[in-house]
Design a binder for these strands. Structure first.
Lengths: 238, 238
DNA sequence: CTCTATTCTCGTACAGTGTACGGAAAAGAA
DNA sequence: TTCTTTTCCGTACACTGTACGAGAATAGAG
């Protein structure tokens, strides 16, 4: 069916995007900058969520006309990529390996989690996005360094990075959704009532028991730590 | 009609949505059905991707006027929830426990992965979505049954379910993106060239080595199995 | 200096989105 | 019949991303 693939996907040639040495010596001087525009978009997403990031709002934030943004990013998809890489610059890149690579990797995962909680739009923006920018690559470099003692081959190391990020993003997304739900208590209550009703309909005995024997509530961080430890501790066995 | 409303969030009261026993005995008879509309939306997403699911296209597919859809779902967000639960109906719900709960859980995860590859829009639609419908709950019921021998408490079991789903979704999303990328070879080649260029810039020695010592390529399924085993095998320890 | 090429700026315009509104149509109830 | 409730859907509106192109600014050439 999908024979008409000739329409260019909005993603752009990485070369052009990330390693452009700013060649133009002629013509009008830029009034803004990719940095400033990206930062404005990030600020908007942090404050009002990803769906509040519209070209018009970003332009207003930066004091530019809407169409001026297109001199700095060819489309919105690219702007999202820029945003992701921009905040990736907050992640540490200096090598702090202790020799215990499992502990190092766990520490990195905790940093990633905190990072995503700080930018709640990040897990959603990350899904399906590729083309790592310089900041993302610097961070990847650090993870690869931590993985050196494992003796894994190249692709395996890259896969560990991808899986770890996906795992953290998945957990963070869940955690963020839960936090957002508990922010509007009537909706949370409605959902609880709904689940309780389902549990007592006779067709969901396991759910009924799970809800009636809740156990002590753990902090999200504790849950994260448990799963993370399980994932990493088994890493180079099997 | 909805007296309350007022506050925003388009998600709707679960009661109203999922357990409404078709109350209206008066008024005009519905010409379509929630089932048919949801199925049409799913067919659209399967064929052309999630972004092709617009109210107009769904309506056209089903032969209805656009605004007629709003008699069956109060907004598009709800329609997405309906879609997710609709395809969840494909997952098996009969208890096939073998007594080896780890093996059972792994089998379930493999089913989930296949399910998501069959509906590539599912991981994206799943992020941040809550309010499980009847099909999702039936599937949850089965997972809880499998987890019975673990002796975990209620919340722990529910968390295992959430984490497992997030993990599978994360992996599936990665796998889908990779497959889509390799479908347009020029873009894949451009990305490869970009990474190679970065690797040789002198600032990314680890990346350079990882790319130069690739190891034998594993199938996505094999990679999935490895990580899944690691995650599950450690499950009720520590 | 003027001329010309180049680059950025941004108002206008357009196709496409979700959905509010309200009238017309249908069907059971009174 | 008339009333009430429900569904159907054309029209309209606010908002999205972005194509187009005219005008402004800058740098080099003459």
């Amino acid at each position: 069916m999908s024979r008409e693939g000739e329409t260019d996907a909005p993603g752009i040639d990485p070369q052009q995007l990330w390693l452009s040495p700013a060649q133009p010596r002629r013509g009008r001087k830029p009034a803004y900058s990719r940095e400033a525009i990206t930062a404005a978009a990030v600020a908007l997403a942090d404050a009002e969520g990803l769906e509040a990031v519209t070209m018009r709002k970003v332009a207003a934030q930066v004091g530019a006309g809407v169409m001026s943004l297109y001199s700095y990013a060819p489309d919105k998809e690219t702007l999202l990529n820029l945003m992701v890489d921009h905040v990736s610059g907050e992640l540490p890149t200096t090598d702090t390996s202790t020799g215990d690579w499992r502990a190092d990797l766990k520490a990195i995962a905790h940093l990633q989690r905190a990072h995503m909680l700080r930018h709640p739009w990040l897990p959603a923006a990350l899904t399906g996005r590729r083309i790592p920018g310089p900041n993302t690559l610097a961070f990847l470099e650090r993870v690869l360094a931590v993985l050196r003692p494992t003796g894994l081959d190249g692709t395996a190391k890259l896969e560990v990075f991808a899986q770890l990020t996906a795992f953290v993003a998945g957990h963070a997304a869940h955690e963020i959704a839960q936090a957002a739900a508990s922010q509007s208590p009537d909706r949370a209550a409605a959902e609880a009532r709904y689940l309780a009703a389902v549990a007592t309909d006779g067709h969901h005995p396991e759910l009924a028991e799970a809800l009636s024997a809740p156990g002590r509530p753990l902090t999200p961080e504790a849950t994260f730590t448990r799963f993370l430890n399980r994932l990493i501790d088994g890493l180079d066995t099997g």
